[in-house]
């Protein structure tokens, strides 16, 4: 089994630990990841926010390269995943628009690629197979699984799990021996694309999510998006200062916890790159 791997800009910088732990976990599961050569940025929110055609042309170049590799694409970043998946769907639904982009850019995409998030890839592996790799069950860990906005929406495009009350990440956590908490903010948006330009809004949205996770009895948050993870992890002191509440919840990538449970070397999981240290909640594991 092989996937064309699209790390995206974040996994090369702010989310290095997501890149490291994704590679380590897929290797353990016997799935080869082959990085898309010379991949370019998907345009993230800014691409489609400013131009419909630019927002499609950027990810289409990556899809075309993946198509020439003859592999489906794994995109761990939720924002990249959403852009690639949307471009793929639009290419199929609007051939005239695809044609116009091809004429302008020379990019030829035939629609022969499936774009997967890590959650979709793990659900294809199956909970039993994941459980079979567990050497150190995550007993006592009570994660709040945070899916955020772009992993599952819009449902017509993503066609996976439930957009309002998803369970695919909870299923992975259960397979690892953790007890995910039931909570209402699984798919609330953290406002990440406003992180630099309107940080007051982001601090409020981040507070709502963190406070709800805490109230729901979680002792950590699990994310599958570098923008969500960065927002929730790095802004906790701002949230605590503004709202006068102690939060102190480590925010880990789903792949870091899988790596822990699989007994992979800590050095491959980048746990030391997290702002809020997970050492205490992972102490017994």
């Amino acid at each position: 089994m092989k996937y064309a791997y699209y790390p995206g800009c974040s996994l090369h910088s702010t989310a290095k630990e997501y890149d490291m732990s994704t590679r380590a976990v897929f290797n353990e599961l016997g799935i080869e990841l082959q990085e898309i050569p010379d991949w370019n940025c998907c345009g993230a929110t800014s691409g489609h926010a400013m131009s419909r055609e630019l927002g499609l042309a950027l990810p289409l170049r990556d899809l075309a390269t993946a198509e020439s590799m003859g592999m489906d694409v794994l995109a761990p970043c939720a924002a990249c995943f959403a852009r690639l998946k949307t471009a793929d769907t639009t290419a199929k639904d609007d051939p005239a628009l695809l044609q116009s982009i091809t004429e302008q850019t020379g990019i030829k995409y035939g629609g022969g690629v499936e774009v997967l998030s890590v959650l979709k890839a793990f659900s294809a592996v199956g909970a039993e197979e994941i459980a079979a790799h567990v050497k150190k069950p995550l007993t006592g860990l009570k994660p709040a699984c945070y899916y955020g906005c772009l992993l599952l929406r819009p449902p017509d495009v993503v066609q996976f799990d439930d957009a309002e009350n998803p369970t695919s990440m909870d299923d992975v956590m259960k397979a690892l021996g953790a007890e995910p908490v039931d909570w209402p903010h699984k798919t609330e948006c953290c406002g990440a694309s406003l992180a630099l330009s309107k940080s007051d809004i982001v601090v409020k949205l981040t507070h709502d999510i963190l406070a709800m996770a805490k109230k729901s009895g979680a002792n950590c948050i699990v994310a599958a998006c570098p923008l969500c993870q960065a927002n929730l992890d790095t802004r906790q002191d701002q949230v605590e200062a503004k709202y006068g509440e102690k939060i102190g919840l480590p925010v880990l990538y789903v792949t870091q916890l899988m790596g822990m449970a699989f007994g992979l070397p800590i050095s491959e999981l980048g746990l030391n790159k997290l702002m809020i240290s997970p050492d205490k909640v992972l102490a017994g594991i």
Binding site: C9, H12, C41, G43, A44
Partner: peptide, 18 residues
């Protein structure tokens, strides 16, 4: 301004250097 700065980074190098 943020969106424009982001896109100008992508236009320059094909990727975003934070």
């Amino acid at each position: 301004t943020f969106h424009e700065s982001f896109l100008s980074a992508v236009q320059r190098s094909g990727r975003v250097h934070e």
